[in-house]
Design a protein around this nucleic acid. Sequence first.
DNA 1: TAAATATACTACTATTTTAATAGGATATAA
DNA 2: TTATATCCTATTAAAATAGTAGTATATTTA
Lengths: 151, 151
Amino acid sequence: MIPKRSKYAIKALTALAKVYRDKQHLSIATIAEQEKIPRKFLEAILLQLRNEGMVNSKMGASGGYYLVKHPDEIMLSAIIRSTGGPIALIPCVSLNFYEECVECPHEELCGLHEVMLEVREASIHILSKTSLADLILREKKLFRKSENSRK
Amino acid sequence: MIPKRSKYAIKALTALAKVYRDKQHLSIATIAEQEKIPRKFLEAILLQLRNEGMVNSKMGASGGYYLVKHPDEIMLSAIIRSTGGPIALIPCVSLNFYEECVECPHEELCGLHEVMLEVREASIHILSKTSLADLILREKKLFRKSENSRK
DNA sequence: TAAATATACTACTATTTTAATAGGATATAA
DNA sequence: TTATATCCTATTAAAATAGTAGTATATTTA
């Protein structure tokens, strides 16, 4: 599983993506309330994302956070990675949290290693082709679908 | 990530699968040494797998553990699940560790939920078609491949 | 039948990670 | 100058994970 901070980050950035076209920014408090994320925790998460250049901020009254890149260019895989979420199921096939297996003499001969690599590739394939913009689009489609089925 | 106990379980069961055709059993000590798993920890893991009916054991001198089913029928997904490893990346799309999102009013309208479902399906697809027998076969192939490339 | 060898079982501890909070410093707008 | 935000460091709380200890029980074998 990925940590909550990764999920919170995705939710918060999606909120920012929704106001991107209007060049608007949102305050931590606003996002926290909207997305039901603990305020102080969100603060720490956004601060980190800012230090990594994924968002920018404006201090002072009527300040807030805004996306640096277009929602089309921000991929889920990137968000998960920069908030410390491992995508792989075991450390020896993780790109960002790689750790050698103590027990494997040669990991290139390990069958489990090979299978877990395939799993990682399949996951990353989906997560790195899905952007914040895609997420918003999906939500619109899901909403329309539920509207239709209520008729 | 899945816990170490899941990985240890896969390694241990693979060791048992390798002697399955000879109807042999292996002692905890033997497996622990072979696979470099802490002895007492492995004991706890195998005991749990036994209580879930995945393996059986024989007490006393020259006792040990053995597989109940054919290595062809034991899938990685089943091992991971019965040792407490979540395959999904977030709780709201997990089959065995499901938890409702506090922040989502309607999870069927959540774009992230939908994407994470796809990731889970892709992972489970691979893990539930791969058996212990497949793992052993893969290892043989990897070994032959490395032999050839050394020529 | 005694010694050796294994599993069965319960309880405990230590470590690490994650989630979340506290509180003051700094910047900006109205 | 007051109100509103972000910035930043430090700390705490809770939970999960990994691993250990020790004793009871069963079975083989000499």
